[in-house]
Design a binder for these strands. Structure first.
Lengths: 196, 196
DNA sequence: GGTGCCATGTAACGCGTTACATGATTAT
DNA sequence: ATAATCATGTAACGCGTTACATGGCACC
């Protein structure tokens, strides 16, 4: 929904055609290193907004350059934007690839939970690399004029640290289970062992 | 990619048909409260895996009940699964709705950054609610037999806390900018003020 | 005359959700 | 009988990516 509402918000600020919205959105979302939105998504999202009556086309301009299809936010669009501002973003419910991977690696038959240990190790290396890259860029950022960049980098760093702390915890709990293997821990998840 | 590799991993554990894979995946991903994967996604993902040669259909069973299409992971599938285990999960690059919303609210013309303050307030309330819900469920979970649940809830809690800390930081920085409004902070992002 | 930017798209695909549909067995 | 569970899908849509395509203008 970020693109949809992002475009709506930018139109409310007075931007007027697809190309301009594209570059403005990329800037808004932290630059194309961070999120390289492709033009097709901009144009198709605008088409959907238009079809929904939140955005309207009010003509075509051509001053020297190529044609520009001029767009405006409609009253309905402004209403939806306001509603969005008043509603919290829902917790993009952890459909977590790392978690799935870890659960699978725990169920894998290798002795000593070896697969899980490797998954954790590989992931931790990657997280450290990312965290290092992020903090380096954060140090280099200019507090004047790059406030958005800094806030974004801070957010990324915090989530990377959260993942690292979580991995520590998982590993600790793994050691613990290792030392006293229970009679029926049953990490294998089966479909229906009900009775039959 | 979670579903794709999740199914591959479950097939490697010996599960054999769509329905069974569906319930096993839901269990693996933390129950349907957490991620309610729909059957169509399972079946269409399996079809794609089959088309890619990672999974093969080896016959149909029918013992008393309805037909079951029996599936197996192929050597190619096993290879892809191993490669997945050896590769870190890439940092689902923050295409962050909350961040976009906040940037838009900062650019909004309201005096005193009012819109931004409201966005922060609404979001913080929601995050506290979620965190409370998560910690309550975590307390109630049984460490024996619900290890996966606990790990997942811990992960969620850590990321909710990261978001809360980040909001604190944003608010602090907002106050700071408020006290000394700079000549050209230019939070408004425009498309092309280059020369023209 | 080529490179790059401005400005617009289409087509096809992958992932994910919602709604709809079918038919059989099992439990109440 | 009816409701739940087992087991399978199709159709249509939204969001997002990749590849492809078209033209004009500006600069070197």
């Amino acid at each position: 929904m970020s693109v949809r509402y992002g475009l709506l918000g930018l139109l409310a600020q007075g931007l007027r055609h697809g190309y301009e919205l594209h570059s403005a959105f990329v800037a808004l979302a932290g630059g194309k290193d961070q999120w390289d939105v492709k033009p097709p998504q901009i144009y198709s999202t605008l088409a959907r907004l238009q079809e929904g009556g939140l955005v309207a086309e009010v003509g075509v301009e051509q001053e020297g350059g190529p044609e520009k299809r001029i767009l405006t936010i409609t009253p309905a669009g402004r209403a939806e934007l306001d509603a969005w501002f008043k509603t919290p973003v829902v917790g993009e419910h952890l459909r977590d690839e790392l978690f799935v991977k870890l659960m699978l690696s725990l169920a894998d038959g290798a002795p000593g939970g070896q697969t899980a240990r490797e998954v954790i190790h590989v992931q931790r290396e990657a997280l450290y690399r990312d965290l290092h890259r992020v903090t380096a860029r954060r140090q280099a950022a200019d507090p004047r004029g790059e406030l958005g960049q800094i806030l974004l980098l801070d957010k990324m760093a915090m989530h990377l640290e959260a993942d690292l702390r979580w991995l520590e915890m998982v590993e600790a709990r793994l050691e613990e289970v290792q030392r006293q293997p229970r009679p029926q821990p049953e990490p294998r998840l089966r479909g229906r062992p009900k009775k039959q």
